[in-house]
Write a protein that binds this DNA or RNA. Structure first.
Length: 198
DNA sequence: TCATTAATTTGGC
DNA sequence: GCCAAATTAATGA
C-alpha cells in the first residue's frame, strides 16, 4: 500500500466500488481527488483519432491512480477504467495535500512512486518508438514482469490479452499475435493454452 | 443454459 | 500494414 489506508480515511478519504469496465474518471475532467487502489486493477487509456485505444498505463492494487494530478492543476490527460472489480479510496485533493505535508513518510513514498513511474514511462516510450515489434513487446513484458516477484524465465504468467498488448505498444493485434509466436520459436517466451509466460 | 458479443487466429492483398 | 472470415472465449439475459 502506497499510503496507509487509515491515514487516507483520516484525511477525508472514502472507499468506492467499481465493476469491470466501469469508468472512474474521464479525460478532460478536473481532478478533485487523490485515488488509491485497494483491490483490483485500473487501466489509464486514451482514444486516438479513429477510436484506437492506447493504454498509457495499468495500475495494480496498493498503488495510486494518476497521483501526479494532486500536484498540478491540469485536467486528466487520460480515462481511468476498472479492469477488475475494484475498490478505490478517494481523498479530496486538499485533504491529501495536508496529509502529505504532515506525514513525511507518505510524502517520500509518493515522491518515489511518481519518480519510478516517470522513469519507466521513459523506458517504455523508448521501446515503443522502435520500428521492431519484438522490441516493443519485450519492453512491455519486461516492465510488467518487473512489477512481480518473478525472476526466472517463463515464470511470469502474462495476464494481458493480445488486444491489450496491442493497445500498450501501438501495434496491431495481428502483429502482436505473429510477433509473440516468433518470439516463442526464439525461446524468448512460452505460450501455453494461449497464455504467455515470460 | 443459450444467444450474443468480444477476442483470437489465419490468410489474402 | 490493413481487411475479411473463421474459430474460440467471455458475457449477460
Amino acid at each position: 500500500m502506497l499510503v496507509d489506508t487509515d491515514l487516507l480515511l483520516k484525511y477525508g478519504g472514502f472507499a468506492e466500488n467499481y465493476a469491470p469496465s466501469e469508468i472512474i474518471f474521464s479525460e478532460g475532467e478536473i481532478p478533485h481527488y487523490y485515488y488509491q487502489l485497494v483491490t483490483g486493477s485500473v487501466k489509464l487509456n486514451h482514444f486516438a483519432e479513429d477510436d484506437k485505444e492506447m493504454i498509457q498505463s495499468i495500475v495494480f492494487e496498493g498503488k495510486s491512480v494518476c497521483e501526479l494530478l494532486s500536484f498540478t492543476d491540469q485536467k486528466f490527460p487520460v480515462n481511468a477504467v476498472a479492469m477488475a472489480p475494484s475498490i478505490v479510496i478517494k481523498v479530496p485533493k486538499d485533504g491529501f495535500l495536508k496529509l502529505i505535508a504532515e506525514h513525511q513518510q507518505s510524502a517520500v513514498a509518493t515522491q518515489r512512486y511518481v519518480a519510478d513511474r516517470l522513469y519507466h514511462k521513459f523506458r517504455l516510450m523508448q521501446n515503443n518508438a522502435s520500428k521492431y515489434s519484438h522490441v516493443r513487446i519485450k519492453g512491455i513484458l519486461t516492465y510488467f514482469k518487473s512489477l512481480s516477484d518473478d525472476k526466472t524465465p517463463y515464470s511470469y504468467e502474462v495476464q494481458l490479452t493480445r488486444k491489450q498488448l496491442a493497445a500498450l505498444t501501438g501495434l496491431r493485434i495481428e502483429t502482436v499475435i505473429r510477433t509473440v509466436k516468433k518470439m516463442e520459436s526464439e525461446k524468448l517466451l512460452k505460450i501455453i493454452k494461449r497464455k504467455i509466460y515470460f
